[in-house]
Design a protein around this nucleic acid. Structure first.
Lengths: 97, 97
DNA sequence: GGCACTATACGCCAATGGCGTCCGAAACTC
DNA sequence: GAGTTTCGGACGCCATTGGCGTATAGTGCC
């Protein structure tokens, strides 16, 4: 199957697990609508580092979102939705000098 | 000249004034880098209401930004930059069901 | 005049942004 | 195997913002 295939499958499994809710110290935390930041990032096959840099989101902020410690506020949610729908265009628009 | 021409000129003047800094109770507040939220919105010829709705930004937040009371945080800045560069695509991506 | 729309100004509080650090897992190099 | 690098989870901390509200003022339309 190759490394990439395996990685991709793991990514999808992680994403699915993530969408379903995370376990925090034995507690299952169900999130009403945890925006699929992680799923978006994984679908683009980027590390937190690269994703954060590409979309100009502070790494710590991205981590907070993915770990469920913080909830993206309204503008951030809109931004994430836009990224989800048009990843390339937005990356271009945001990284362009 | 017509109403639209007049409005457009006023818009530009406002945007310019805005970029230069606002007067607050006699104090001139110079802003290091006030992101041109208002200029972007005016260039799209939208009211605060419409702009906020179109890009899923709470009206009060947009107001705070335009009035210089609050500074958009990093993700919001990236979002605004993206809006500036690709207004239509993003509006579509964000408003689509 | 009265109505609707638009935008400025600002008080308030909980919540987040943004920084930091520490730790463990996985993968590569030597 | 030991060392190194990359990746990501977990969390402490505090200033700042988001998001809500209300009040005021100017404009154009009926």
């Amino acid at each position: 199957m190759g490394r990439f295939g395996k990685e991709l499958i793991e990514s999808m499994q992680q994403a699915a697990k993530h969408a379903a809710g995370r376990k925090v110290r034995g507690l299952r935390v169900s999130r009403v609508e945890l925006p699929d930041v992680k799923a978006i990032r994984l679908s683009l096959r980027m590390s937190q580092h690269h994703f954060a840099a590409a979309y100009r989101i502070p790494l710590s902020t991205l981590k907070n979102w993915e770990q469920g410690r913080r909830m993206p506020d309204a503008p951030a949610l809109a931004y994430l939705l836009a990224i989800k729908r048009r990843p390339k265009e937005i990356m271009e628009a945001v990284t362009r000098p």
